[in-house]
Simulated assay, not measured.
Amino acid sequence: MYFSLCETNECPQNLADYQLTYAFEFLQAEVASFAELSGDNNPIHIDEAYARETVFKRPIVHGFLVGSIFSRIFGTQYPGIGTIYLSQSMKFLAPVFVGERYQAKITVKEVNLQKNRAVVSTEIFNHLMKKVLTGEAVIQHPIFH
Results as ranks from 00 to 15, higher is better:
residue 1 M to G: 07
residue 1 M to D: 08
residue 1 M to T: 06
residue 3 F to C: 03
residue 5 L to E: 05
residue 5 L to G: 03
residue 9 N to F: 12
residue 9 N to C: 01
residue 10 E to W: 14
residue 11 C to W: 13
residue 11 C to S: 13
residue 12 P to I: 01
residue 13 Q to W: 13
residue 16 A to T: 08
residue 20 L to E: 08
residue 21 T to W: 10
residue 22 Y to P: 03
residue 23 A to T: 13
residue 25 E to D: 13
residue 27 L to Y: 10
residue 28 Q to S: 10
residue 34 F to G: 00
residue 35 A to L: 01
residue 35 A to M: 03
residue 36 E to R: 15
residue 38 S to G: 05
residue 39 G to E: 03
residue 39 G to N: 07
residue 40 D to G: 04
residue 41 N to E: 11
residue 47 D to T: 03
residue 53 E to V: 10
residue 53 E to Q: 12
residue 57 K to D: 09
residue 57 K to V: 09
residue 58 R to P: 05
residue 59 P to Y: 10
residue 60 I to A: 04
residue 62 H to A: 04
residue 63 G to V: 01
residue 66 V to Q: 10
residue 68 S to C: 08
residue 68 S to M: 05
residue 69 I to K: 07
residue 70 F to T: 01
residue 73 I to C: 08
residue 73 I to T: 08
residue 75 G to L: 00
residue 75 G to K: 00
residue 76 T to F: 14
residue 77 Q to I: 14
residue 77 Q to K: 12
residue 81 I to M: 15
residue 82 G to D: 05
residue 82 G to M: 07
residue 83 T to Q: 03
residue 83 T to N: 03
residue 84 I to Q: 11
residue 84 I to W: 06
residue 85 Y to W: 01
residue 86 L to H: 02
residue 89 S to C: 01
residue 90 M to A: 14
residue 90 M to C: 14
residue 90 M to F: 11
residue 91 K to N: 12
residue 92 F to W: 04
residue 94 A to V: 02
residue 94 A to Y: 09
residue 94 A to M: 06
residue 95 P to V: 08
residue 98 V to I: 08
residue 98 V to G: 05
residue 100 E to F: 12
residue 100 E to H: 13
residue 100 E to I: 09
residue 101 R to P: 06
residue 102 Y to M: 06
residue 103 Q to D: 12
residue 105 K to L: 12
residue 110 E to I: 03
residue 112 N to A: 11
residue 113 L to N: 14
residue 114 Q to V: 14
residue 115 K to D: 09
residue 118 A to Y: 02
residue 121 S to L: 09
residue 121 S to V: 09
residue 124 I to L: 09
residue 124 I to E: 02
residue 126 N to R: 07
residue 126 N to D: 11
residue 126 N to I: 06
residue 127 H to A: 15
residue 128 L to C: 14
residue 132 V to M: 03
residue 133 L to G: 04
residue 139 I to K: 00
residue 142 P to Q: 09
residue 142 P to D: 07
residue 142 P to N: 08
residue 143 I to G: 00
residue 144 F to R: 00
residue 145 H to T: 14
